[in-house]
Write a protein that binds this DNA or RNA. Structure first.
Lengths: 189, 189
DNA sequence: ACCTGAACACCGTTCAAGT
DNA sequence: ACCTGAACACCGTTCAAGT
């Protein structure tokens, strides 16, 4: 029919959101586009590359807020908008975490966090570790949260009263730990 | 030949360690045991259950140290021994994190962390969040670490000088955040 | 209690060839 | 530039039947 790379990514997102990551196969996506699976290899080297492109597009769709304040407020906004984005599409947390772990994409939030934390006065090595720790928290927490939300929505009504501020609590924990290090550095810097 | 459930799990661990998670298939494991893949379904309902049993066995093999001290020292020991265990077998971090995310097994470290943190005086909800946050850090950090270690060992010699204490730094970050909350609670408790 | 044989309904990927 | 047709080498799972 004549699809472009972006058409494929967009359709892949639709398949992901409707049927889940397990059903986002090259064959399924091909038939969804009215095309043989082999045609997809004209646009992508392999499935991993396609998934990376999907992850990057999901992250590009994040709703960012401009925020006044220091490194902590900026980090909170980055982590919060990341979580919102991941919760917006089925299995998105697992997808983005996987792509990120394989080093194929999804690096925007990491770069943003490093940038935000640079204003804290932490040393570069500490800044990178802090950024990665925040990301591990967001991916881990949101992945768990998404699994529970999807399990609750599909079938069982054992919708246990999950603390709505659970994410904020865990995030504050990590940010407080970073703050301690920031203050330790500036006191004898 | 007459295998028992434990034989299957042990052989699965050997296959995992030698060939990786992607090659730990029911067919591969069957042929490794000299048995048809369908025979494995006598011992396990499905592959997920088998993987959960493998994860639990890996975690049971952790080398624990008895440690004197408060909640922080105990939490450090749990997280450290968990990391060591995950780095002891190929792809173990990814396997255990997946099994844990699906809620099928690997719950021992979480229970231990909740137990250790109970001595801190945090409220139950905070204790659970703190324990989960520590786990997300260990799984995320160790998974990344393992990916890099395995990538470096297979082929490329671009063995960038990874900070040996990077894990300790990130862990201290989270533990400091927990400490802040502990102290905030006891001051006006 | 443990296993076989055979099938079902799938995968990702390659590649020559077509338009 | 984009796609087909056909193949290769796999998957997890089920189930009647065997010992």
């Amino acid at each position: 029919v004549g699809h472009r790379r972006d058409d494929v990514v967009e359709r892949a997102i639709a398949v992901l959101d409707q049927y889940g990551l397990a059903d986002l196969t090259m064959r399924r996506l091909g038939s969804e586009l009215g095309v043989r699976p082999s045609a997809l290899y004209h646009h992508f080297d392999n499935k991993q590359t396609l998934l990376a492109a999907v992850a990057d597009e999901l992250l590009a769709r994040r709703v960012r807020r401009t925020v006044a304040g220091g490194w902590r407020q900026r980090a909170e906004e980055i982590c919060g908008s990341l979580r919102d984005a991941l919760l917006s599409y089925r299995d998105a947390a697992e997808l983005v975490a996987t792509v990120h772990a394989f080093g194929l994409g999804g690096h925007a939030p990491y770069a943003e966090l490093v940038d935000a934390l640079a204003a804290s006065g932490l040393r570069p090595a500490e800044t990178r570790t802090a950024a990665r720790t925040l990301l591990h928290f967001v991916f881990g927490h949101t992945g768990e949260e998404q699994t529970h939300l999807q399990a609750a929505s599909a079938g069982a009504i054992d919708d246990e009263p999950r603390e709505t501020s659970d994410f904020d609590l865990g995030l504050a924990l990590v940010l407080d730990g970073i703050r301690v290090r920031v203050e330790a550095g500036s006191s004898h810097g």
